[in-house]
């Protein structure tokens, strides 16, 4: 009956709105990045083909490497610490039946639905040098001498921004992993106990492999955020990249829209794009075949 749809333009009419709008406003700009990355261009005048010169410059650009190193620090705070802490807490809770897990989940996920700009604005106050919350707490417990402008000094600024990410992701990981552990077959643990495996070995040989998919989900999501638009927004609104907090994405933005070096900015952005898409693809390969817990 529905076979005749195979012929004719009907299917194309159905997909046209999505496909055409995507081709024009997503795929075309995505591909244009490749072209822009091999030209020298201020964004308005004529373009000059320069081959791979932008990438050669990038490899020698200390500002680019500094930005990439900053992203690496964010990766530790947004990806590594929340996942390790989450696994630790989840394995402590283990298979104990937790009532009201959903209520905790509801709370823990809230940072994920709030605009990163709003999170950054809130944490500007948290970290403010005068009348900020952290310094206020320090003063309240008699540690006034530790108070400092957290976002306004190179020694603390990157850490302070990174901790915003830890805060936003940590609860998310805990819930993801706790819910994942509850699904692991109890017999596996019983068999391990009979074999005399201790808590640590149970963790390495049962919990971690069976949580593989949940770990991958957290890894992909948080990695993309530690490199991409999330950290871009948070940094832009907290420090605007000062004191060594600038990630690669913000560097590319400033190159293109402040310094007027559109070609070079596109090369920088292309490297970031490859990094994010590569990590996401790798993660998808590792976590193939199962659904996440919640």
């Amino acid at each position: 009956m529905s076979r005749h749809w195979s012929r004719g333009i009907l299917p194309y009419l159905y997909i046209a709105p999505t496909v055409v709008s995507t081709l024009v406003f997503v795929i075309y700009p995505f591909l244009a990045n490749f072209y822009y990355s091999v030209v020298q261009w201020d964004g308005f005048g004529p373009k000059r083909f320069v081959g791979l010169a932008n990438f050669a410059e990038l490899s020698r650009d200390p500002r680019f490497w500094a930005a990439l190193a900053t992203n690496l620090i964010y990766f530790v705070y947004i990806v590594v610490i929340p996942i390790v802490l989450g696994l630790l807490i989840a394995s402590v809770i283990g298979r104990a039946k937790v009532r009201g897990l959903r209520a905790y989940q509801t709370i823990y996920f809230i940072p994920q639905v709030v605009a990163p700009i709003a999170l950054g604005v809130i944490f500007r106050w948290v970290y403010a040098p005068l009348f900020g919350i952290v310094n206020g707490l320090l003063q309240a417990v008699g540690l006034r001498h530790l108070a400092r402008p957290w976002l306004g000094a190179p020694e603390t600024a990157t850490t302070a921004v990174g901790i915003i990410g830890t805060w936003a992701w940590f609860g998310f990981c805990v819930i993801l992993f706790v819910a994942g552990i509850q699904k692991i077959d109890e017999h596996l643990y019983e068999a391990a106990k009979i074999d005399g495996a201790g808590a640590v070995r149970q963790f390495w040989h049962i919990t971690l492999p069976d949580l593989r998919f949940e770990v991958v989900v957290a890894l992909i999501m948080a990695t993309v955020q530690s490199l991409g638009g999330y950290i871009f927004s948070v940094v832009r609104v907290t420090t605007n990249g000062a004191y060594g907090t600038r990630p690669v994405g913000l560097y590319a933005y400033q190159l293109a829209f402040v310094e007027g070096r559109v070609g070079y900015a596109s090369a920088v952005m292309l490297v970031l794009t490859a990094l994010i898409m590569g990590i996401a693809a790798l993660g998808r390969m590792l976590g193939e075949g199962r659904e996440a817990a919640p």
Partner: peptide, 18 residues
């Protein structure tokens, strides 16, 4: 599939030109 993977920051520079 590609449209889902592309994030806004990847395309911000050409998007302005477009």
């Amino acid at each position: 599939g590609l449209g889902v993977m592309v994030a806004s920051e990847f395309i911000m520079i050409p998007l302005f030109q477009l």
